[in-house]
Nucleic acid binder design. Sequence first.
RNA 1: GCCCUCGUAGCUCAGUGGAUAGAGCGCCGGCCUCCGGAGCCGGGUGCGCAGGUUCGAGUCCUGCCGAGGGCGCCA
Length: 562
Amino acid sequence: MIHSGVVAPEGEPGAGRLACQPMNPPVPEILQEALATVLVASGIERAPADIHVERTTRPDHGDWFTNLAMVVAKPAGRAPRELAADLADRLKAHPPLHVDKVEVAGPGFINFHLGHGWLEDILARLLEAGEEGYARPDLGHGEKVQIEFVSANPTGPLHVGNGWLCSFGDTLARLLERCGHRVSREYYVNDTGGQVRRLGESLLARVRREEVPEEGYQGDYVTELAGHYPGGSEDDVTEAGRWAAARILDNIRGSLGRLGIRFDEWFSQASIEEGGAVAETLQLLSSRGLVYEKEGATWLRTSDLGDSRDRVLIKSNGDITYLGGDIAYHRNKFLVRGFDRVIDVFGADHHGQVASLRAAVAALGVDPESLEIHLGQMVSLVGAKMSKRAGNFVSLDSLLDDIGKDAFRLLSLMKSINEATTLDLDLVRRQTMDNPVYYVQYAHARISSIGRVRAERGIAMVPVAEANFSLLTHPRECELIRCLDELPDVVADACVRREPFKVTNWVRKLADRFHGFYHDCYVMGEGVAPDLTQARLHLVEGARIGFSIGLGLIGVSAPESM
RNA sequence: GCCCUCGUAGCUCAGUGGAUAGAGCGCCGGCCUCCGGAGCCGGGUGCGCAGGUUCGAGUCCUGCCGAGGGCGCCA
């Protein structure tokens, strides 16, 4: 932490100076407003609702550009380049804030070259907002959203694949929270039905020192649990299964804790199936004429609602199907607890239930748009598939023992969950020393180190308002500030598109920019003027804020030293 | 057979319809007088195939090829 030793007391001149100076609006707003104005002046009647301005990818294209002329030209019956030139001329007559140069290029792009004041504004805005306020777009407006993830059956420890989606769900939850949603994390506990009975059978078999049935759970953990089983009626498989499931659930909680994940709700499937929820749900569906009896079973007309066929809710033996319980569960989410939006995160092996569930939610009278289902593609190991029943999975705990929480979270949040992953455990373990996590954390440790050296040398930081950011003209400094400028957009984008890995990519980019800055721009080196030192100290603080926000979102710790 | 996801550099992956497609790893070669060298700088190869939409396609549409997953009165 870098804290000023000379923070001006409140009320004195200087302390509130920043707040008194109205902050300039961000560049996109400045450009959009200017473009809207010249568009009208140029005789274009209907301006697009959303005028698109973007950062350029190449320096010779300036800093920002718009495709506005090309978008508007055709409906207006004008040539794109001609219109672009017209707009550019009008902009040049009254240049918007920070705009040094306006150019028309290519098929009709308008490029903006900005002055250094742009970067100074970015840094000032970032430092004023701080870790709490920066990159906190209010996209949700308090929307009440529930996110259910993992929900692995308590029939065995979490494996690496489970952990992968844990990272996704938890970081998505953090993103939603940061972007103005009220988020509840939920774990649906399958503590009833066939899986539990099967677990109980496996346990009792081990208690009797017999082989586990073929369809049972073969893992060593069952044998271990059997050693502690207090008994009970020897043939009550449900009782045995529930006892084992409770133990395993404790283990799962522990693994999640190691990953920094806490659930707000552990929702019992038994509470749904053994309470009145299913009956109430059936009644609702019946009243809509969507339920019928056939061959002794109770069916839901899901084929009327986008599913490929109808589905059974109550088996002919009277048992509730998984779907039957799941519908009641989703009725509870939407209609009982009143979530505005429900997000389910499943593994791709649950693909088969998506259409049914969507149809079922529609059958409940809930807007299907408010149910989001994200399928994470399979995570497997080189040369092996993980199977809980066969007991040949790699547990999340053992991998965490090897590489640690930070490396695991970063690793699991580096790419889209739409992409299948095959882990080479040897490689992952070996990569430990040149894992991206070190690159990122080392950058943060260097920031802390700068703070320590500053304290040792007794250098006090001046207030932000007294720092002269116009001195930060080194290319490394400019690149670092530009990177920090992207964070609010990255957070919003990652949230809206449900793509947490974008945050990881950004953090890595920030680390890259910071290492470059650190290498070329000594903050307190010999011959660095005091004013420049002050400006750079604030830039370093800005980077620290960026790391804190980014690493906080992906759940990776920001160490003071390595 | 039908449905979903994916195919971009040797490998792992980025790339809201924009201009000359980018990182990391690996490989080769440089850089420690000062805040931590777990760092910095330089070096090169690529959008599975074929059509279509568009001023403009890695991105959107159709078909094909290839990989993974799914199509139960299992969960």
